[in-house]
């Protein structure tokens, strides 16, 4: 198997995630698509790590995971706050910066 297959799969997943961010309007689903893109990037890092035979790529993927966890916590808190003030999780409803 060609080692580039992992990269092609990651590119495909990243593209699907980007497409989802563009077309979905539920803020939580948009957020899930962003997670999908982060995961695709992680797969690339792990595949490159194996290609070059050192652990630095895995360390990078590890840091991406940590930052993604922090991002999920803050992002979901913002979505919950938006839902409380507007009673909707749709990104179309949050068109103004203030209430």
């Amino acid at each position: 198997m060609n080692p580039a297959n992992y990269l092609y799969l990651a590119a495909l997943l990243f593209t699907i995630g980007a497409f989802g961010v563009l077309i979905r309007r539920n803020a939580i689903v948009v957020f899930m698509c962003i997670e999908l893109m982060l995961n695709a990037a992680n797969l690339t890092l792990v595949a490159f790590s194996r290609m070059h035979g050192n652990l630095d790529g895995q360390i990078m993927a590890f840091f991406v995971m940590v930052v993604a966890a922090a991002e999920v916590v803050v992002g979901l808190a913002i979505i919950v706050m938006l839902y409380r003030s507007r009673h909707s999780a749709s990104v179309d409803d949050a068109s103004l910066m203030k209430l």
Partner: peptide, 11 residues
């Protein structure tokens, strides 16, 4: 891209 070096030595 070449081929996989492999994680064996690094691990």
């Amino acid at each position: 891209l070449g081929t996989f070096t492999g994680m064996g030595a690094a691990n």
